[in-house]
C-alpha cells in the first residue's frame, strides 16, 4: 500500500508532466521514443512510455502539439512532435505559474528552518 508521501509525490509528478513534455519540445521537434529517452534521464520524474504516449495524443488533440512523419537516415520513418503557437503560449503560461508556485513554496519551506 502506498504511503501518503508516495501518493502525494505521484500527484506532483503527474501535475508537472505536461509542462515537462512541452518544455522538452520547446527547443526542437522530437519523436516519441526520443522524448521518452530524454525524460528517462530525469529519474525523479519517473515517467514511462505508457504515460508519455497518451499524453502526446491528448496534447495533439488539444492543438498544443502537432505531429508529422519524417524519413530517418537510420531506419523507418519517425513521427516528430512540434509545439504549435498555442502550445508555446501554454508553455509560457504554465512556466510562469510553476515558477510562482515553486518560489512561494520554497519561501515557505525556507522560513521553517
Amino acid at each position: 500500500m502506498r504511503t501518503e508521501h508516495e501518493a502525494w509525490a505521484s500527484q506532483l509528478r503527474k501535475g508537472v508532466l505536461e509542462l515537462a513534455v512541452l518544455g522538452l519540445l520547446a527547443g526542437e521537434p522530437k519523436y516519441g521514443s526520443q522524448l521518452v529517452d530524454d525524460l528517462a534521464t530525469h529519474p525523479e520524474l519517473s515517467i514511462s512510455a505508457g504515460t508519455v504516449y497518451p499524453l502526446l495524443a491528448r496534447l495533439a488533440k488539444a492543438g498544443l502539439v502537432t505531429s508529422v512523419w519524417q524519413e530517418s537516415p537510420v531506419g523507418p520513418p519517425r513521427k516528430y512532435y512540434t509545439l504549435t503557437e498555442p502550445g508555446r503560449r501554454t508553455l509560457n503560461a504554465m512556466t510562469q505559474a510553476f515558477r510562482a508556485v515553486s518560489a512561494t513554496v520554497t519561501t515557505i519551506l525556507e522560513g521553517q528552518r
Binding site: G32, A57, A60, K61
Partner: peptide, 8 residues
C-alpha cells in the same frame, strides 16, 4: 508498430 503510429 509504434505506439503513436496514428494520432488517433
Amino acid at each position: 508498430i509504434e505506439p503513436d503510429a496514428e494520432s488517433v
